[in-house]
Write a protein that binds this DNA or RNA. Structure first.
Lengths: 110, 110
DNA sequence: TTTATATATCGTAATATTGCAATAAACAAA
DNA sequence: TTTGTTTATTGCAATATTACGATATATAAA
């Protein structure tokens, strides 16, 4: 117990859940919003911008990177991060389809 | 440690994260998809539909209900569940705004 | 009242997540 | 080479999540 039974769900359901999970923490939401706002690659800054310790930010960045939503590039001693545009667009299609499910409910007993 | 520092993030960032978190499990994704597909309130069924034990489904339903995304109505011995249309629409606005952040990146060093 | 059916809650074990101090690694500058 | 700067990794404690058996609750049917 304690572990999600991914095998009983469809690939798409698991995909949606994985994307949603990574958005399920305000620090990662904040990181992504900052990367969008800055509108260019950002080296450093993120630790100062968000009020969490450097190892914590590094860990959140790793998760975003593992899902392919951001990419990083070593630039001297620092690493520049930015949104992975293509992957973000692909994710958006999956998530938007889920959110936009049609609701023309016939009966409403609730 | 082990607990999210919600106080250092904006209300909106926390809201996005909370919605995303509830979508971050394939069982809840599956439940919501089923409610949309059935297109009416459903009493029972969910336990048979998804391959998880009854207490587990009940727990997932509770989380969806707590966030206001579904509502339940007691109908004899069973409980009927359906999507909470208004709240789903409100959630959709928040999440879509997050997903649709503009990306006209000036530089792309990554 | 007794029995059957459906859902919720409790308790608990297994696993995952969050956060950070300490430390490592990688590179630039002196 | 030494020093400083930046990011990643390790290890660990605190907390959260997932799943389910056992049981409680509520109503319907016999």
């Amino acid at each position: 117990m304690g572990l999600t039974k991914t095998e009983i769900f469809t690939e798409k359901q698991n995909k949606i859940a994985l994307f949603a999970k990574v958005f399920g923490h305000p620090a990662r939401v904040s990181i992504l919003q900052h990367l969008f706002k800055i509108d260019t690659c950002v080296c450093g800054d993120l630790v100062n911008e968000i009020g969490l310790a450097q190892p914590t930010i590094s860990q959140h960045l790793k998760e975003l990177k593992q899902l392919g939503l951001i990419k990083g590039n070593v630039e001297g001693t620092s690493v520049c991060y930015c949104i992975h545009k293509e992957n973000w667009a692909a994710m958006k299609i999956v998530m938007t389809e889920f959110l936009n499910q049609d609701l023309t409910q016939k009966q409403d007993c609730c």
